[in-house]
């Protein structure tokens, strides 16, 4: 099994390399340049050319790529054209905010999604199951950003229970009050994100449970005299939860992708918001850094899922 994992990890290396080239070229291919939009109308063309030149934008692409790569290995992702700050610092600050939100939303997604999914599958066609299915259909039918805006309007604006913008209140200082303030800022977006994200888990788990309930091995267990309650505990739930644990890896990417909507609607200064603004301002260095990061994260997520799957399912474990 360790061999499988190690081999799987080694495959990541060329993948990341290819990804980095693609990301770099993609960023280069975007129309416009970082200076055109944000310079003084009186700036001379010569000066712009000069700026472009000292920033290395006239070098051949492979040289630019090479420079970028060398810097990357030194933890230097370049300067953001928009903020005139090192990309690593900007991304670092935002990443912490996103992480707060993502962890909160993920925990909530699974904490609600798993029991609800198991319940719906166990009590198929009960009233509870009907209610749950109704919820999942409705939630799936509404675009996510509409849910976000409605949540924001009702709970943030009308009821005023939660802050509607930012990641931390102004003038809260540091220490414990800052933590409380941060929590207040992630509760509403986190809950909304979880309520949307758990739909997939619930639907998947419900059908897994129903399939398992009708499987032959469950019939075997029942004919051994195992009480129904224990059949669910030892056979159905265990076997149905396995494929879900593997999706935990993928959900890393899912949550960061989803956070683009959430962060934009809530003006929450995380990676998603940064990504949107970087695209608006053609902030190449930030875009490349973020796309690269999303790419690497999704590769790691897949890797993690594969490893979890291999660890829990004996049929994969054996080569």
């Amino acid at each position: 099994m360790w061999k499988t994992i190690l081999r799987r990890v080694l495959i990541i290396i060329p993948e990341v390399f290819v990804l980095s080239i693609l990301v770099f070229l993609l960023a280069k291919a975007m129309p416009g340049d970082p200076f055109t939009g944000s310079i003084n109308p009186h700036t001379s063309l010569a000066h712009i050319h000069h700026l472009m030149k000292i920033n290395g934008l006239y070098d051949p692409w492979y040289q630019q790529y090479w420079n970028w790569l060398v810097h990357l290995f030194h933890g230097d992702l370049g300067m953001s054209y928009e903020y005139q700050e090192p990309v690593t610092r900007i991304v670092g600050e935002r990443a912490i905010n996103t992480l707060w939100l993502a962890v909160f939303a993920t925990v909530l997604t699974y904490a609600i999604g798993l029991p609800v999914g198991l319940y719906a599958g166990r009590h198929q066609n009960s009233r509870g199951d009907h209610a749950i299915r109704m919820y999942t259909y409705v939630t799936y039918a509404i675009p996510f950003f509409v849910i976000l805006v409605m949540g924001l309007w009702i709970f943030g604006y009308l009821l005023g229970w939660f802050p509607t913008t930012g990641s931390i209140g102004t003038n809260v200082g540091s220490g414990f009050p800052a933590v409380i303030s941060r929590l207040q800022h992630i509760i509403l977006p986190g809950i909304l994100q979880a309520l949307f994200g758990l739909v997939g888990i619930v639907q998947y788990l419900r059908s897994e449970v129903i399939d398992a309930t009708h499987s032959d091995y469950v019939r075997t267990a029942r004919s051994k005299g195992v009480p129904v309650k224990d059949v669910f505990k030892h056979h159905v739930f265990r076997n149905s939860l396995l494929p879900i644990t593997a999706t935990a890896g993928y959900s890393i990417t899912g949550l960061l992708g989803g956070s683009i909507y959430t962060e934009t609607v809530f003006s929450y200064p995380g990676m998603g918001l940064l990504f949107v603004s970087a695209i608006n301002y053609r902030d190449y260095t930030v875009i490349t850094a973020l796309v690269l990061m999303y790419g690497v994260l999704s590769m790691l997520g897949t890797l993690l899922s594969d490893i979890i799957m291999a660890a829990v399912d004996p049929r994969i474990r054996i080569e």
């Binding site: 032959d216 075997t220 076997n239």
Partner: peptide, 14 residues
């Protein structure tokens, strides 16, 4: 005691 037709699916794979 009961014995079933398809021994692969009659056993819990995990």
């Amino acid at each position: 005691g009961m014995i079933f037709q398809d021994p692969l699916s009659a056993l819990n794979p995990l």
